[in-house]
Design a protein around this nucleic acid. Structure first.
Length: 796
RNA sequence: GCCCAGGUGGCGGAAUUGGUAGACGCACAGGACUCAAAAUCCUGCGAUCGCAAGGUCAUGAGGGUUCGAUUCCCUCCCUGGGCACCA
């Protein structure tokens, strides 16, 4: 065998493929389409580590497989390059973000090129390209036009280190910034907000239609949307002419409530305490809470509150008055910001005991019963006394409350509107103009894109203004409406803007006049398989939101952007930790390609384990994949012109297994099936030419270079990647002999090789005649259980 | 606390309309080839008792259903992920 010179082979074929434009998508064909997409990368300055290409390898294999099965495949790649990481990198290294991004993209492309991917690079896109972000801005204007983008002045999440406002999705569960881990504070400021909440219900409901999405992703999105159905109850304030509305999700327990709690920022608090002797104390408490982050405010789950001195009427119990408190645990952004509290909630009980507020219970004998259980028989509950809580009863109670005018049905969501402006340089300028006379005026479509101007200082200002505000020549413009003096919006869009619609651009990347040509969208959309990790909530929520909006304005033809989602598991370092500069355990794919070749790396990453599992890198395992390829190379010396009959069955089985496994993204077992076949060929010592061709085609998506080389060496025509995928014959994939287990009383005693589909009596005779097995059946069985081609079990 | 996904050899993992647990690969051990080493090839490799034939135990733990359970049911433990003072 000639030595396996992976470097020569890989560079030779990468060049040939490029010269032949082998991977260019043919847009005008009658073939069925497949749109196979990776979550496009953020071109960071660190470059790729071996974990990054895992998903790209999978989509590469899948799209090669689909092409060989007669599909026209759209498999593009692009760059998500706006946002904080590029900007922070640029500030740190004192280069313009544009320059840094260009350099990083070039580096990423070189690294990807080494792995032999079949991307159609003629469709490459970049979110920071004005030709691209023109349309990102255009979508914003449409959102604005439809009332889904508006300015807000509510306090928002503010990262003091990144010096910008953040969306809820950008804040970790522990209240830190997702990018830099600084503690996020609240800051009141003007910001642009997208009304994603208007789509919350549809995004929740349509999750059920996404049958090819992993359950855990859908569950994460359900949690994030956080829909809760409940009721709103209005409580007239005693001796006042206004009322407080509370939200409750457990209507069966309303008769147990004895007091009401308001969130510190509830707008009625100042009005409620105005002129009362409690005013000072309450307002002090409110401003103390306002100065704290949510995390600090609820630290240690300690319950803090203050009595307003006011009471409200309880519409459930005539004459009953409920004291009104302000407390740290009530949240303004859920329900109405006001709650009824009872003796059936641990938190409410703890608070009441601390401040000596009387409690009531409506279920049980005084020992604590949690309302969340929705179980038990009601007492002291007006017309419902004596009834047992059930879904039917709850529905009945709500209906009665509505009829009596006590309550209204209300749905509350955890998801918040999307804070869409950033006070940073490296993002799409928000295309609006502020005019003293006309107010907010959208930039006319003909003036798009609003180019991001060059600026001397792109560091964040920290003043709540973006660095763009300092460029007077850019900021000052005539109002498009009245022609008077006006100023441009200086906030930019968040990193997630461009990635919220980019899959549409790939379909039609050079179209200057439309966001998407609808004929082309109907041809390619939606994405058939979308592959990536991370972003279970953010990117996938935002993308679904924009896609639904684009559907509503008749630009796309489907309700969902991604039919099937494959979520990948990461590659850990060999030491089991995350690959990170900090640990010094990063493995660079360039080094692996250099030492064992791209093909070995590709095979190994697919063989490591199930695609969705997070698995540590193993250099030993990598060597195993290299050995497999070397064995395939060596097999070439065993090729003869006639097919080997003894290999036919297993070859058909292998074709079947590999096809089914690629289809299901079970690449690890596909590789294993290929190894089993190669083992068998080695046992037979010989393989037919056509059989070897078939084997090479099966391996081609996994190891495209070496199979192309062998394809040529064995005298076939360029290119193996344009061959048709082999079809298996189900009849030939089953052998006529089977090995079945012989059991006595359910315990396996041995096995016997017999003809397929043999009758029970025949099997019994074979076992009787078998030297080893006959001794196990020298009794008269009470019962015999025979499962054809599987087991025979003799019950004594 | 609630929800989701998992728990199988020294390691990654395979097998589920219930039917021989540990495929495939790695690591390890022994052997062949070699002056030697690497590479390659052959053999072994869950635990335990046994010279062997063979037996017993074993898929997080404990119960259950079944001729038969990694697979189905119940209770519990652990790991990873999402949500969480959410009314």
């Amino acid at each position: 065998m000639e030595p396996y010179d992976h470097k020569a082979i890989e560079s030779k074929w990468q060049k040939r493929w490029a010269e032949a434009s082998l991977y260019k998508t043919n847009a005008s064909t009658d073939k069925p389409k497949q749109y196979i997409l990776d979550m496009f990368p953020y071109p960071s300055g660190e470059g790729l580590h071996v974990g990054h290409p895992k998903g790209y390898i999978a989509t590469d294999i899948y799209s090669r497989y689909k092409k060989m099965n007669g599909f026209e495949v759209l498999h593009p790649m692009g760059w998500d390059a706006f946002g904080l990481p590029a900007e922070n990198f640029a500030i740190k290294h004192k280069v313009h973000p544009r320059v840094a991004v260009e350099k990083n993209i070039a580096n990423f492309k070189n690294q990807l090129a080494l792995l032999g991917f079949n991307y159609d690079w003629t469709r490459e896109i970049n979110t920071t390209d004005p030709a691209f972000y023109k349309w990102t801005q255009w979508i914003f204007l449409k959102l604005f036009e439809k009332g889904l983008a508006h300015q807000s002045f509510e306090p928002i999440n503010w990262c003091p280190s990144c010096q910008t406002g953040l969306a809820n999705e950008d804040v970790n569960a522990d209240g830190t910034c997702e990018r830099c881990d600084s503690t996020v504070t609240k800051k009141p400021m003007r910001q642009w907000v997208l009304k994603i909440t208007e789509y919350a219900d549809r995004m929740l409901q349509d999750l059920d239609s996404l049958t090819e999405w992993p359950e855990h992703i859908k569950e994460a999105q359900r949690n994030w949307i956080g829909k809760k159905e409940g009721i709103i109850v209005s409580h007239p304030v005693v001796d006042q002419d206004f009322a407080i509305e509370t939200f409750s999700a457990y209507p069966a327990w309303m008769y147990a409530d004895t007091y009401v709690v308001l969130a510190p920022e509830h707008p009625l608090v100042p009005k409620l305490v105005q002129g009362l002797e409690t005013e000072q104390e309450v307002l002090q408490f409110v401003s103390l809470m306002a100065s704290k982050t949510m995390l600090e405010r609820t630290e240690g789950k300690e319950k803090l509150g203050v009595f307003t001195g006011c009471y409200v009427e309880d519409p459930y119990r005539e004459g009953a008055r409920m004291p009104v408190w302000v407390a740290n645990f009530a949240l303004m952004n859920f329900g109405t910001g006001a709650i009824r509290c009872s003796g059936h909630d641990e938190r409410d009980v703890a608070f009441a005991e601390k401040y000596n507020i009387p409690l009531r219970t409506v279920v049980g004998d005084g020992t604590f019963v949690n309302a969340h259980l929705n179980e038990g028989t009601l007492k002291d509950s007006g017309p419902f006394t004596g009834k047992t809580i059930s879904p039917t009863l709850i529905a009945e109670m709500v209906e009665w409350m509505v009829k009596m005018g006590i309550a209204k049905r209300k749905t509350s969501y955890k998801i918040q509107d999307w804070v869409f402006s950033r006070q940073r340089y490296w993002g799409e300028p928000i295309p609006v103009i502020h005019c003293k006379k006309c107010g907010v005026v959208p930039v006319p479509e003909k003036d798009l894109p609003v180019l991001l101007p060059d600026v001397d200082h792109y560091e964040p200002t920290g003043t709540g203004e973006s660095p763009l505000a300092a460029i007077e020549s850019w900021v000052n413009v005539p109002c498009p409406s009245c022609g008077g003096d006006a100023k441009r919006e200086t906030n930019t869009m968040p990193q997630w803007a461009g990635s919220s619609w980019y899959w549409l651009r790939f379909m039609d990347p050079h179209n200057a006049s439309e966001l998407v040509n609808q004929n082309i969208e109907k041809k390619w959309g939606p994405v058939d398989v979308y592959v990536g990790g991370d972003h279970a909530v953010r990117h996938l929520i935002y993308a679904r939101f924009w896609h639904k909006f684009l559907y509503d304005i008749n630009l796309v033809s489907t309700l969902e952007p991604f039919t099937r989602l494959e979520f990948l598991g990461f590659v850990l370092a060999e030491d089991g930790r995350k690959m990170s500069k900090r640990w010094g355990n990063i493995i660079n794919p360039d080094d692996i390609v250099h030492s064992v070749g791209a093909d070995s790396m590709r095979v190994y990453e697919m063989f490591m384990g199930p695609f969705e599992n997070t698995v540590p890198w193993s250099t030993n395992g990598l060597v195993g994949s290299r050995r497999f390829i070397e064995r395939v190379l060596r097999l070439r010396d065993s090729v003869r012109s006639e097919d080997v009959a003894a290999l036919e069955t297993i070859l058909h089985q292998t074709v079947q297994k590999v096809s089914e496994d690629i289809e299901k993204f079970k690449f690890n077992t596909a590789v294993s099936a290929l190894m089993i076949f190669v083992n068998e060929v080695e046992k037979q010592k010989t393989i037919g030419k056509k059989q070897y061709d078939t084997l090479l085609i099966l391996i081609a998506p996994f190891a495209p270079h070496v199979t192309e080389e062998l394809w040529e060496r064995i005298g076939n025509h360029f290119s193996i990647h344009q061959e048709m995928w082999p079809i298996f014959d189900p009849a030939k994939a089953t052998s006529d002999k089977v090995e079945i287990a012989v059991q006595v009383g359910g315990k396996t005693k041995g096995s016997i090789r017999i003809s397929r589909d043999l009758e029970e009596g025949e099997v019994f005779i074979r076992i009787k005649n078998d030297q080893k097995l006959s001794k196990y059946v020298d009794f008269k069985p009470k019962k015999v259980i025979y499962v054809k081609n599987k087991i025979i079990n003799f019950i004594p």
